[in-house]
C-alpha cells in the first residue's frame, strides 16, 4: 500500500505547511489599511483555511487511518502519535475560531494568540515526526 503512504505524506505536508501559515495570515488581518485590502485579505485567509488546509487535513487523517488499518499497525507509539495529532487538530480548530473572530472584529489585534498557536504547531509537527521515525516504544 505504498500509494496510500504517499498520499498520506503528501497530504500531511500540505496540511502542516498551511497550518504554519494560517496564524500569520490571521495576525496580518488587523494591519490592513484599506477596506478593500481587508476584504481581499479575509477572502484569502478563508480560502486557505476552507479550501486548502482543512481538506488536506481530512485527507491526511483518513489516509493515515487507512495506512494503519491495512498494515494492522497497533503499537503504543501510534497511540502516542495520534494523541499529539489530536492536539494538532485542536490547534487547527482554534485557528478556525480565531479566523471567525477576525471576521466579526477585524481590527482587534490578535498577534499574541497567533504567535502562541504558531509556536504550538511548530513544536507539535517535529514531535510527531520524531515519534514516527524513532518509534520509541
Amino acid at each position: 500500500m505504498l500509494w496510500l503512504l504517499l498520499l498520506h505524506i503528501s497530504a500531511v505536508l500540505c496540511w502542516c505547511g498551511s497550518l504554519l501559515y494560517l496564524p500569520a495570515l490571521i495576525a496580518g488581518t488587523a494591519s490592513q489599511q484599506t477596506a478593500i485590502g481587508l476584504q481581499r485579505h479575509q477572502a484569502v485567509t478563508i480560502m486557505v483555511f476552507s479550501l486548502f488546509a482543512t481538506p488536506a487535513a481530512l485527507i491526511a487523517i483518513a489516509s493515515g487511518t487507512a495506512v494503519f488499518i491495512t498494515g494492522r499497525i497497533v503499537e503504543p507509539w501510534l497511540i502516542l502519535k495520534l494523541t499529539l495529532v489530536v492536539v494538532l487538530v485542536v490547534c487547527h480548530a482554534v485557528v478556525g475560531w480565531m479566523l471567525l473572530r477576525t471576521l466579526t472584529a477585524p481590527y482587534k489585534t490578535v498577534t499574541l494568540p497567533c504567535v502562541l498557536l504558531g509556536a504550538a504547531v511548530a513544536l507539535l509537527i517535529p514531535a510527531i515526526v520524531w515519534i514516527v521515525l524513532t518509534k520509541p516504544f
Partner: peptide
C-alpha cells in the same frame, strides 16, 4: 462549504473516527 464551522466539524469528526478505528483494530487483534 462557505462555513468555517462546517470544516472544523468535519476535521474533528475525522480525527474522532481515526481514534475509534484504531480502538477497534486494537481489540480485533
Amino acid at each position: 462549504r462557505n462555513l468555517i464551522i462546517a470544516w472544523s466539524h468535519a476535521l474533528m469528526a475525522v480525527m474522532t473516527l481515526s481514534l475509534a478505528s484504531l480502538n477497534w483494530l486494537l481489540r480485533f487483534n
